[in-house]
C-alpha cells in the first residue's frame, strides 16, 4: 500500500487500489465496505473495500480477519500484508478523505454532513469496483447510522446488487473485516507519516488518542492554534471541539454570508412596500454611477 | 490603525528637494458637495491627486507578515486643481462680484491647506479658461466668467467622452443591479448617452448649479 500519492497531497482526497484479480472479472464476487477514523478530530478518514469471488469467502474466514477492532496496529499491519498477498483472488481499494476535505465539505454553504460524505464515498467505491470489471453480486456494509435507510439508499443506487447493511458488520462478514483492516492500516500509516504543510518548525506530535474528548488532544489543539489561521490542516476544523477552541481563542473573522445568517434568524421578512418607499438619504448627493458600480467612494477621513 | 493600502504613482515616493516639501495628504473642499474630502499633493504641489477608495464589505489585507483589518483599497488619481480653485472663484463672484487677486479668493478657514492649490503651477496658468483677467502693475486680478467656464467644461466633457469610448466603459441607460458591470457595450448606445454620462462624471467636480447650466449648454 503506497501512500506516497496521499503524502504528497494530503489536503485533498486520494484513491488507492490494488490490481483487480482476473478471477474477480470472471466470477461472481462479494464486496465489503468499512471505514476507519470517523471519530477522531485529527487526521484523515479512510473508506476501504475488499472484494473476492463468492467461492473464496471461506478462505477469508480461515484467515481469521474478523474482530479487527481488537487487534493492535502491528497485528493489523501483519494481517494486511497477508490480505495483500492474496492477489490471485482478493482486491482492495481505499478512499482517503483528508481532514481538509472533511472540514470543507461539512462547512460549505450547502449542507453536506459527515453521513452524506460517508455514503457518497462508499457509493463511489462500489461504482469503482463495477467500473473496474468486478462481477459484483453481494455487498456488505458496516454502518453506525440507521441501517435500513442506508440499505434502501444503496439498493436504489445499485438495484442489481444484493446489499446488506448492518451495524458491526465487520464482526459478521469476513469480507467487511478485510475492508476494515485495509482502511485502518491506511489511516494508521497516513497519520504516522503526516507531513505538515504548514511551516511550524518542530511540531510536538504527542496529541494523545486524537479523539475530541481526550484532554491531551484538546491541549494539543489549543497549543497549535494560530489566532489568525486556526489549526494545521491535520485538524478537522468542522469538529465542534475544534470550533469551540477557535471561537474562544482565535480572532473574529467575518465572511460575506455572515449577515445573511444573522438576518435569517431575525424577526421576519420585510414588507414588499418597504422596497418602494423613499429612503431617508435619497436627497443626499448620490455619487455618479461610474463610482457606484465600481464601489469607489470619496474619502472624508482615513 | 496606522496603515492603509494605496495605489499611486511611483513618483510620489521621490524625495523632495527640501524637507517639508514632500507629498502631502490633506483635506480640501469637494467642489460638488462642499464637504471635506481627502486629496494628495505631490512634492512641491506639482500635481494634485484625488483620493478614492474601493470599499466593499468583508475584506482585510495581508501585508507582508501582518494582518490589516481595514480592507479598503485607496487610489490616488491625478486631477485638475482648477476644479477646486473654481469653487472659490464662483463663491467670490456670488459674494463680492469684483476682480480680486487669486490668493485672496482661495481662502478657506475650514480647510487651511486650500492655499496650497495656488502652488499648482498648471492650474494657475489655466485660470484664464474660467476667469476674466486684469493686470495692474505686476499683479493679476481675476473674476469668475460663466461663459468661459462652460466652454472649458465642455472640452472636459468631450475629452471624457473620448476616454469612455477608448476604455469601453458601459454607459447604456438600462436599469440593472449596481454590482452588475456589463463586459460589452450595448448596441443601442448613442452619442447622447456618452455625453450625459461624461457630464455626470464632470458634475462630480463642480457645484450643482454649474452642473445644471453645463447640461443645458
Amino acid at each position: 500500500m503506497e501512500l506516497e500519492k496521499f503524502e504528497r497531497n494530503n489536503w485533498g482526497s486520494c484513491r488507492l487500489s490494488s490490481l483487480v484479480p482476473p478471477l474477480c472479472r470472471n466470477q461472481h464476487c462479494c464486496l465489503g465496505i468499512d471505514e476507519a477514523g470517523r471519530g477522531p478530530v485529527l487526521g484523515p478518514m479512510v473508506y476501504g473495500i475488499c472484494f473476492c469471488p463468492l467461492s473464496n469467502k471461506q478462505d477469508l474466514e480461515e484467515l481469521k480477519v474478523a474482530d479487527s477492532k481488537t487487534l493492535s496496529e502491528a497485528e493489523r499491519e501483519r494481517l494486511f500484508e497477508k490480505l495483500d498477498s492474496l492477489k490471485e483472488y482478493l482486491g482492495w481499494a481505499l478512499q482517503i478523505l483528508s481532514p481538509n476535505v472533511i472540514s470543507t465539505s461539512m462547512q460549505q454553504r450547502v449542507k453536506y454532513n459527515l453521513n452524506a460524505l460517508s455514503h457518497d464515498t462508499a457509493i463511489a467505491l462500489i461504482q469503482y469496483a463495477l467500473d473496474s470489471g468486478v462481477q459484483l453480486r453481494e455487498v456488505f456494509v458496516d454502518t453506525v447510522g440507521p441501517a435500513e435507510k442506508y440499505q434502501e439508499k444503496l439498493k436504489q443506487r445499485f438495484p442489481e446488487l444484493e446489499i446488506t447493511v448492518k451495524p458491526k458488520a465487520d464482526s459478521l462478514f469476513p469480507i467487511v473485516s478485510a475492508a476494515s483492516i485495509c482502511a485502518k492500516v491506511a489511516r494508521d500509516r497516513a497519520v504516522k507519516s503526516w507531513k505538515f504543510l504548514e511551516d511550524l518548525g518542530d511540531v510536538n506530535l504527542d496529541y494523545g488518542s486524537g479523539y475530541p474528548n481526550d484532554p491531551k488532544t484538546k491541549e494539543w489543539l489549543a497549543r497549535n492554534l494560530d489566532p489568525v489561521f486556526g489549526y494545521p490542516q491535520f485538524v478537522r476544523f468542522s469538529w465542534s471541539t475544534a470550533q469551540t477552541i477557535v471561537d474562544s481563542r482565535a480572532v473574529p473573522v467575518r465572511w460575506d454570508d455572515c449577515d445573511g445568517d444573522e438576518k435569517s434568524s431575525s424577526k421576519g421578512s420585510q414588507s414588499m412596500l418597504s422596497f418602494f418607499a423613499r429612503k431617508k438619504d435619497d436627497t443626499k448627493h448620490q455619487p455618479h454611477r461610474f463610482f457606484q458600480e465600481r464601489k469607489l467612494e470619496t474619502v472624508k477621513d482615513l | 490603525p496606522d496603515q492603509w493600502v494605496l495605489i499611486a504613482r511611483d513618483s510620489l515616493l521621490d524625495l523632495p528637494k527640501k524637507p517639508g516639501d514632500g507629498a502631502l495628504f490633506t483635506r480640501l473642499r469637494n467642489p460638488s458637495t462642499g464637504e471635506g474630502a481627502l486629496f494628495l499633493f505631490s512634492s512641491c504641489a506639482q500635481q494634485l491627486f484625488e483620493i478614492k477608495v474601493f470599499k466593499e464589505d468583508y475584506h482585510s489585507w495581508f501585508v507582508g507578515q501582518t494582518v490589516q483589518h481595514d480592507g479598503r483599497l485607496f487610489f490616488a488619481t491625478p486631477m485638475d486643481a482648477l476644479f477646486l480653485i473654481l469653487y472659490y472663484l464662483i463663491k467670490a463672484e456670488k459674494e463680492q462680484g469684483k476682480f480680486q487677486p487669486v490668493d485672496q479668493v482661495v481662502v478657506d478657514e475650514a480647510f487651511p491647506s486650500s492655499c496650497i492649490l495656488l502652488q499648482c503651477t498648471r492650474a494657475m496658468q489655466s485660470l484664464h479658461h474660467v476667469t476674466e483677467e486684469k493686470e495692474i502693475g505686476s499683479k493679476k486680478f481675476y473674476k469668475y466668467n460663466k461663459e468661459k467656464t462652460l466652454k472649458w467644461l465642455k472640452k472636459k466633457v468631450v475629452q471624457t467622452v473620448k476616454a469612455l469610448k477608448s476604455n469601453n466603459i458601459c454607459v447604456g441607460g438600462s436599469v440593472h443591479s449596481a454590482t452588475f458591470i456589463r463586459s460589452k457595450q450595448m448596441l443601442d448606445v448613442t452619442e447622447e448617452d456618452y455625453t450625459r454620462y461624461a457630464h455626470g462624471l464632470i458634475s462630480e467636480y463642480v457645484p450643482e448649479e454649474l452642473s445644471a447650466d453645463l447640461l443645458k449648454y
Binding site: V228, P252, V253, R254, D256 | H59, Q65, T66, V67
Partner: peptide, 22 residues
C-alpha cells in the same frame, strides 16, 4: 486582499500558512 474581514491588526504568520502563487 482577502475575501473576509479579520478583526485584528498585527502580526500574522502568513508565510507559514500561505504560499504565494501567480
Amino acid at each position: 486582499l482577502l475575501p473576509c474581514e479579520i478583526q485584528y491588526d498585527g502580526h500574522a504568520a502568513v508565510d507559514k500558512y500561505f504560499t504565494p502563487t501567480i
